[in-house]
Amino acid sequence: MNFDFYPFYLSIKLAFIVTIILLILGIPYAWFLSTTKSKIKPFLESITALPIVLPPSVLGFYLLFFLSPNAYVGKIFYELFNIKLVFSFEGLVVASSIYSFPFMIQPIQGGFESINKNIIEASYLSGKGKLITLFKIILPNIKPSLLTAIVITFAHTIGEFGVVLMVGGSIPKKTEVASVAIYDYVENLEYPKAHIYSATLLIISFLVLLIVYYINHRKKIKSGIGY
């Protein structure tokens, strides 16, 4: 039985890129959400949380609709960067970023909202600007939330199926990620392969979660943050 690990490579690569993109976008956006007093906050929060409640097929359908080269968004990307956003790896990145968005935002926003506002002001009163305060005071003090956000986003991206299948199809070496590969194997009645793939995903997912909870547990005991 020849065994192809490429779908795992694709899954991990996709999750890695998506996590980095969302981390960069997520920190300022979550900061905005946690500090704004604007009336549009509930509106923005609802949009952010949509991917959690929407069936992946709905999201996948709309993404397919908007990202195709015939639609505006897809057209702009195609003309500007010569990138096709459907049935391509780039398309998977865009779709997964949208699908995993709340998993990055919500823990970080929670961290920002729970931080003692006085230490932020104490930093300003120490003569430090907003950027230094963010990197030296705020982010180090919400490390558990950041770690949770990063790992959950990563794991969630590896675990997604519906959106990826709809936007990416199942093109080997391009968009066939691990979860989709399992579906294909089951469909072709190749149960042994499906077993191995499933078990591998199960173990990876469990280990990832175990590491997060373990590190957070240790950190809380050591630093007293959160107690």
């Binding site: 230490i119 002001e121 104490a122 009163l125 003569g127 430090k128 005071i137 007293g224």
Partner: peptide
């Protein structure tokens, strides 16, 4: 940041990290 003041908070507000 630009005012020449030292401020002591009621709850200390030390940087925990």
């Amino acid at each position: 940041q630009k005012r020449k003041i030292g401020f002591v908070f009621q709850d200390f507000a030390l940087f925990p990290n």
